[in-house]
Write a protein that binds this DNA or RNA. Structure first.
Lengths: 346, 346
DNA sequence: CTGTTAGCGCGTTCAT
DNA sequence: ATGAACGCGCTAACAG
């Protein structure tokens, strides 16, 4: 029996191929393809035509290696499926795209070990810079310090940690927490529960501080048992709701540091038949696109993800272009806005 | 005035640096770093120690160029912020990560022109393979045919188009549309509206076919004016709701081909004070994480995004490892499941 | 076991 | 205006 094995070697055409086909030198082809003024218009046209004919496509990896530049920037987020982060990414892509950069996105899944590995991979890939929002587990910073010593420019957004000389683009979390809590107070709530996250992250400390400050302003005494710390996943919210319901007095408001936990709480309330009166409200920080829309009792603190992404990228590009070392880090703070859905059902 | 300009040239250490420091050859260093058995354990240890000391980090770009391999696969999705796609991406990352591949994610934003540009960029970056879900505008396939001729393996997921010899991982959209519609019929609905998308995409044609088939099974006459085509954005849903309300008879059910439009419709209904009775239900295809949870009148067709991502990646890797050309494309179909939230409020 | 040489695909000298 | 030669960082062939 005859075996007919066809092996197709897909040799992509190189500048040498097109040089050989035209009996000229590869360097001329290179110059033509880079639109150098040092090659005649006539041969330039001929080369371009030939390149097109042979389906030539520049190997940017080889090109970048030779020029020792890199036009991709790395992005590390805890979880791509969180709407806030995906809108940040959209902003990053937009700004990076405009500046001629590619973006490679990685998710730490809130795990320090994964974050470490990702940083390593990005450095091995010689990315031009990194934008990151640290994981909830990130309490040691060796990998980040390593990246800094390495000379790779990077910048925090949303979640940062105190590393000397690293800029960040943040949200005014204190104000957000304050607004959310005051919103509830003005609705008549007096016993306001609060879901907070890992205290290692400044965003959660600040949101809680805003909560406390609003209570103080309105002369409502602070009750520690109303503040629950967790990883703010959906089941954390459910459990938190159960805890709040088990208190000897009635909790009439809830400020959750993110909306995932807030939704978990609402699920629990519905399941248990707890009716949420219009006066009681739940405020979720972080903007899933649909959360507040369906049920008016859920108000959200809208975080400008897209703008943060754009701004962070622009700042990173700026820092990348700097030849001197900047010792002073810049912290940019954006405001979030409280979005109350029109409670049309009343 | 004296100008003191400090220029830091961040020369990353190379294998030559560490070779020079040890007075040995770079190739030995390379071998040691690749854990080749052809290097004595003693020198291997010494080299590793020195590499560590100098903070060496392999330049994978150069390495890949030499080996003429590439360990990144490209992913093109219409919009990363759609929860379905971000869960697919999670599945892809998981599977790719396990196989030692990096993933570069791009969004077409439903624009053909962007999709074209992205394909070009990915090819220029010599990605090992591509996973893609085409944009709503993709009615011409020159860029995809080009990629095929180029020899780059690729595979469709969720949204495909009929290109010879390209595999796809799909969802059983006909069944999903059928299930959704029958669900409404069994709830007592008779005049069921349907939001559909661009008919160029098979997923929308199939969902509509399922809708019609369910009507036929239950001997309900098909009314063309109940089927509205659009881009299925939120405002399309709002407008669709308005159109349905303007009909001379009462629409008592709605099957939307995605949940974004379904949510738009719900917003409109609430704003107009239209009460959605328990018997009337809205079914949204595509699984935003929170949609159905908050309001029991929204039932969702759950699409197994993560599994699709994993499966698609495995298939792509398999096809990449093939030396012979497979003419027959494989179409894998996954089932979606209708998830009805327990309407605890009744 | 280790060194020498060559080249992946490209861009940039330096010549002519 | 074009060609020859070299090197980006690394690996693979062939020596010894």
């Amino acid at each position: 029996m005859q075996v007919n094995l066809l092996i197709i070697v897909e040799n992509k055409t190189t500048i040498h191929d097109i040089a050989r086909a035209m009996k000229i030198d590869a360097s001329t082809v290179s110059r033509a393809l880079n639109n150098s003024p040092r090659v005649s218009l006539k041969t330039k046209d001929r080369i371009l035509a030939k390149a097109n004919e042979l389906g030539y496509q520049r190997n940017v990896l080889a090109s970048n290696l030779r020029k020792s530049v890199n036009n991709t920037i790395g992005v590390i987020v805890p979880r791509i499926s969180r709407h806030f982060f995906s809108s940040v990414i959209s902003g990053i892509e937009e700004a990076a795209y405009d500046a001629g950069y590619n973006v490679i996105i990685c998710q730490s899944l809130e795990q320090l070990e994964r974050e470490r590995k990702i940083v390593e991979t990005l450095l091995a890939n010689r990315v031009a810079g990194v934008l990151l929002s640290v994981s909830m587990e990130t309490v040691k910073f060796d990998h980040l310090l390593n990246m800094k010593n390495n000379g790779t420019p990077f910048l925090f957004f949303d979640r940062h940690c105190g590393i000397e000389g690293v800029s960040s683009v943040l949200i005014d979390d204190f104000q957000g927490g304050f607004d959310a809590t005051e919103h509830l107070i003005l609705k008549g709530c007096r016993n306001i529960g609060h879901f907070s996250g890992p205290q290692a992250l400044a965003i959660y400390r600040n949101r809680t501080a805003g909560y406390i400050s609003a209570l103080e302003k309105h002369k409502i005494s602070y009750r520690p048992e109303l503040v629950l710390h967790s990883g703010l996943m959906e089941n954390d919210g459910e459990e938190g709701a159960r805890t709040l319901l088990s208190l000897p007095y009635t909790v009439d408001g809830l400020f959750s540091a993110n909306d995932v936990a807030a939704i978990g709480a609402m699920k629990y309330f519905k399941r248990e038949g707890v009716i949420i009166p219009d006066e009681m409200a739940i405020v979720g920080f972080s903007n899933e696109p649909v959360s507040g829309i369906i049920d008016p009792s859920l108000t959200t603190i809208d975080q400008p993800g897209f703008e943060i992404g754009q701004l962070a990228t622009r700042l990173l590009l700026e820092e990348m272009s700097r030849t001197t070392i900047t010792v002073k880090a810049k912290t940019t703070i954006l405001k979030s806005s409280l979005i109350e859905r029109d409670s049309s059902r009343r």
